[in-house]
Amino acid sequence: MTSPKAVVTNTDSKPLEVKSVFYSDGVQCAASLFLPEAGAETSDGLPAILMVHGWGGVQGALTGPFIAAFIAAGYAVMTFDYPGWGSSEGLPRNCINPIKRVGNVESALTHLKQQSVVNEKKIVLWGTSFGGGHVVDTAAQHPELLGAIAQVPMLDGQDAVKAIPLLSLLRFGAYGITDCFMGRRPIYIPVVSAPGEFGSMDRDGAEDAMNRGIEIAGIQYDNRVAARSVLTIGMYRPIKRLAKIKIPTLLIGASRDSVAPFNRMNIENRNKDYVQTKMIDANHFEPYFEPVLSQNLQYQLEFLHSLSANKE
């Protein structure tokens, strides 16, 4: 299937946002391409960053400061919504299957490469949280890319499951198994919840972070995820693909992360040639906000600068 023609919006402001759609598994997905300035181009196209959202992530939520920083650094930035999430089509809504999501990232990457203003040889993958795992999976399959960044990445579902309190784990299992028999009418649980309340993420200030993120972005958020989704976490282990990565990759972990524990030594031992790590003293959600955001962005911008320098 070919994608319909892109629609340009906000032509009187900077950055320029180009809205478009692409198809993944036959489902129409929404995408936005942000450009450094109206009409900004180079003779061989702009370097670009494909942003891969996390567990319950949608376009606009928690990514604004990163988009602004990358655009200021001269990159085009593309965001997208997974099928069944945000502005994308697809039923049932708000279901997560990590294997299918990696396929969605592949479709988004193909779409980005097709944009006339983008240099397809200078694309960087960027992922956060669960999406950081998708970036590792995708990077391992694309040695032609310029590089990859994953912040607070969920690299090992087994470690993530071990961090969940037992009573919550049992409740997730009961809801998830029941939901598997519901077909296109899922049983939903909250994506984020207050500490101690039932939701797929109730730790590390998850609810406060999402509320701040959507308020800053000025968007509405459907705080639901199909319960069957939680059954996929333990089986998802992108850490096994780290050794296959052949492009410069930056992984940024948080020292107090209880949502996606970051085992730095284990990670570094799997690929010393292409993967570098940085640590931030933070929980899972603090790197999205100040005062931790500045350090997080500094690591990422320094890495992007090194990619540009090595390419010249």
Results as ranks from 00 to 15, higher is better:
144 E>G: 06
108 A>K: 04
28 Q>E: 15
211 N>D: 14
84 G>W: 06
241 R>I: 01
245 I>V: 15
92 P>V: 03
47 P>H: 08
237 R>P: 03
205 G>V: 13
173 G>Q: 10
117 V>R: 11
70 F>H: 07
284 H>I: 12
81 D>H: 07
136 V>R: 04
106 E>D: 12
232 T>F: 12
49 I>G: 02
256 R>Y: 14
285 F>V: 11
180 C>V: 05
260 A>M: 10
118 V>Y: 07
98 P>C: 04
271 N>D: 12
71 I>P: 02
296 N>L: 07
28 Q>H: 00
73 A>C: 10
196 G>H: 02
91 L>Y: 06
128 T>C: 03
5 K>W: 07
122 K>V: 08
310 N>D: 11
281 D>I: 14
207 E>T: 03
140 A>F: 09
128 T>G: 06
55 W>C: 01
130 F>N: 05
260 A>W: 05
307 L>G: 06
294 S>P: 03
122 K>A: 15
296 N>S: 15
78 M>K: 06
79 T>D: 10
113 K>I: 04
148 A>W: 09
114 Q>C: 13
242 L>I: 12
203 R>K: 14
236 Y>C: 11
88 S>G: 07
123 I>W: 06
241 R>T: 14
207 E>W: 13
172 F>M: 11
309 A>P: 02
169 L>E: 08
15 P>W: 09
153 P>D: 03
3 S>N: 11
241 R>Q: 15
56 G>T: 01
291 P>V: 12
169 L>V: 01
153 P>F: 01
142 H>T: 10
29 C>P: 02
34 F>D: 06
109 L>Y: 00
310 N>T: 14
172 F>N: 01
247 I>H: 07
281 D>S: 14
85 W>T: 06
274 Y>R: 10
250 L>V: 11
81 D>K: 07
112 L>A: 14
90 G>D: 04
191 V>R: 06
162 K>A: 15
108 A>R: 04
304 L>M: 15
79 T>W: 01
305 H>V: 02
132 G>N: 01
261 P>C: 14
156 D>G: 13
19 K>Y: 03
310 N>L: 11
264 R>K: 15
48 A>E: 10
174 A>W: 04
93 R>G: 04
38 A>F: 01
275 V>G: 09
12 D>N: 13
255 S>Q: 12
13 S>P: 00
29 C>Q: 05
9 T>R: 12
24 S>A: 15
13 S>D: 07
103 G>Q: 04
131 G>N: 03
154 M>D: 05
206 A>E: 09
129 S>G: 09
230 V>I: 15
192 V>D: 04
221 Y>E: 11
190 P>M: 11
221 Y>S: 13
156 D>V: 02
130 F>A: 11
63 T>H: 06
